[in-house]
Nucleic acid binder design. Structure first.
Ligand SMILES: [Zn+2]
Ligand SMILES: [Zn+2]
Ligand SMILES: [Zn+2]
Ligand SMILES: [Zn+2]
Lengths: 133, 133
DNA sequence: GTCGATATGTTATGACATTACATCATATTT
DNA sequence: AAATATGATGTAATGTCATAACATATCGAC
């Protein structure tokens, strides 16, 4: 029984659709450029929408790329625990995994140190099977 | 039998010492400011030194902070596998862990996808025991 | 309608990182 | 020693990512 999501605002929808249709990570400024024809003029319009979309878990931020990507979980179930991003440096393809073993171990180590985890980032850089040597 | 490390250059040493003495993450521009009295004038002097220190594993880059930190392994043994950084958002304290379970599982999942891992980053953000509510 | 909360528009600024080119130091070869 | 190659350094300019500050607009609760 989850509360129904309030609708996205116009700007939030535009930003989300841009990311969802790209199916790949985009920087905030790339999103801005793609939305200029829809009236976007300034970075803050993008960043504000991104912040709200992040809060709702509809998108993710890839820290190692300074870029954003639509969540690959179509049904918007909450993300419990760490998300693992597998990023090909050659073709730019990104895959999102959730791994219970990694998540459990992260939490085990955090508890050991009495560390309260607010967010966990796992990003793998390398080459996907299609780009292998 | 590891080959002896060639000595660091003057700039590399200055940057490394700055990070080692700070014992905390510093941005490239913070390092630059601290080294102005030693003749540093431009960001590139810092970034070039950081690149070399990263190559040798003497320092790490914290992707979620856009900052750099000296490796906490005093003996400069190679880092095999994922390094886990535990970062307190309140006091800024950073701890570096190496966890075989996390590393093994990352590699297991990568192999499943035929993904060749070049680097793996795990960063936990939250509150350390000293900063708990 | 008034008020409060949220969203938006706009300008300017701050923070992080690289490109391009010139110069200097050092090691190797001839 | 002179010539060459390699890596390090100095400097200016530029590019990329993100936020501060302030004004205006929209919408629902009362
Ligand atoms: Zn997701
Ligand atoms: Zn690829
Ligand atoms: Zn280390
Ligand atoms: Zn702390």
């Amino acid at each position: 029984m989850t509360a129904p999501l309030p609708n996205l605002t116009k700007n939030q929808s535009l930003v989300f659709e841009t990311l969802a249709e790209a199916g790949a990570p985009l920087s905030a400024y790339t999103i801005l450029d793609q939305l200029r024809e829809h009236g976007f003029r300034a970075p803050l319009q993008v960043y504000r929408a991104l912040d709200k979309l992040l809060e709702r878990g509809l998108i993710h931020r890839l820290e190692s790329l300074n870029a954003f990507v639509a969540c690959q979980h179509k049904h918007s179930h909450g993300h419990q625990g760490a998300t693992v991003f597998v990023i090909c440096g050659t073709c730019g393809d990104v895959n999102e995994l959730h791994d219970q073993v990694i998540n459990d171990q992260i939490m085990r180590r955090a508890v050991e140190q009495k560390f309260q985890v607010e967010s966990a980032m796992v990003e793998l850089r390398g080459r996907c099977s299609g780009c292998a040597d």
